[in-house]
């Protein structure tokens, strides 16, 4: 099948080139000595040095990490509980609740951003890192829910029954059998949620206030104010970091 369709292979390789070339070009030119031109004028680490000296950048990185960490913890806690609740205790009207919980995955992100902003403004919660974190937890929750629930669904229900049959109380059956089997999925969703939070621009853009600039907001303002090799250097770092996080997340989910 595969051998008979070499054009499929060519198309697929071309597709990968389309996906990778821009990123690789970006990284390559972060070492380009020219400040303005896209022509290669020699190797330099100058742009990375400039990044290292950027105080505002450092602050935005800390903000992003803080938001990602807290929102991931909240989303994971609530998401895991909700996954267990949905999967193990079926109830009337479950379909409605399920669809509502998956809403953030289907409504345009900008709608979530502006509606949250309106909500915070009307309840007089000043836009800050706190409001950003609340918003991030909201869009990460369904992601955790979906991943953990998929894992729960794949577990043989007779595993918990077997534990009960062997003398375990309901809590023991959960903590000794189900929970350990959920851990990889939980770690996977933690890393995924963390990465998504770290990368989010839209919701952050609308819910951040003065002084709560996150990394993507900072990148946005840099790009808005013009193309410089410093952005290439920052991008290169972000690419490597995202790749590492996602690689770890996938490895954990697969286990």
């Amino acid at each position: 099948m595969v051998r008979r369709t070499p054009w499929l292979l060519s198309a697929s390789v071309a597709n990968l080139c389309f996906l990778y070339a821009p990123i690789l070009v970006l990284i390559l030119f972060s070492f380009n000595a020219s400040r303005l031109s896209a022509a290669w004028q020699g190797f330099t680490l100058e742009w990375y040095r400039l990044l290292a000296e950027d105080e505002a950048l450092r602050l935005s990185v800390w903000n992003s990490l803080l938001v990602a960490l807290v929102s991931t913890l909240v989303a994971t806690g609530l998401g895991v509980c909700a996954a267990i609740g949905l999967e193990r205790h079926p109830f009337r009207g479950q379909k409605v609740v399920e669809s509502a919980m998956l809403l953030p995955l289907v409504i345009p992100e900008i709608m979530m951003g502006v509606s949250l902003m309106l909500f915070f403004l009307l309840v007089k919660l000043p836009l800050s890192l706190i409001t950003v974190t609340i918003g991030h937890a909201a869009f990460n929750l369904p992601i955790v829910l979906v991943i953990v629930r998929a894992r729960l669904r794949k577990l043989d229900p007779s595993l918990e029954e077997a534990a009960r049959d062997l003398g375990a109380t309901p809590w023991q059956a959960f903590s000794r059998v189900t929970l350990p089997l959920l851990v990889p999925a939980m770690w996977g969703s933690v890393l995924l949620a963390f990465t998504i939070s770290l990368d989010d621009f839209i919701v952050t853009f609308f819910t951040a206030g003065p002084g709560s600039t996150t990394l993507p907001l900072y990148v946005y303002s840099m790009v808005k104010s013009g193309v410089t090799p410093v952005i290439n250097a920052l991008s290169a770092i972000l690419v490597v970091v995202s790749m590492t996080l996602i690689g770890a997340s996938l490895a954990l989910q697969r286990r």
Partner: peptide
């Protein structure tokens, strides 16, 4: 089930 003096060999084995 956990207080019954019976044990079950599951059809799918249900090994942890």
């Amino acid at each position: 089930p956990n207080r019954r003096p019976v044990n079950l060999v599951f059809q799918t084995y249900a090994l942890f």
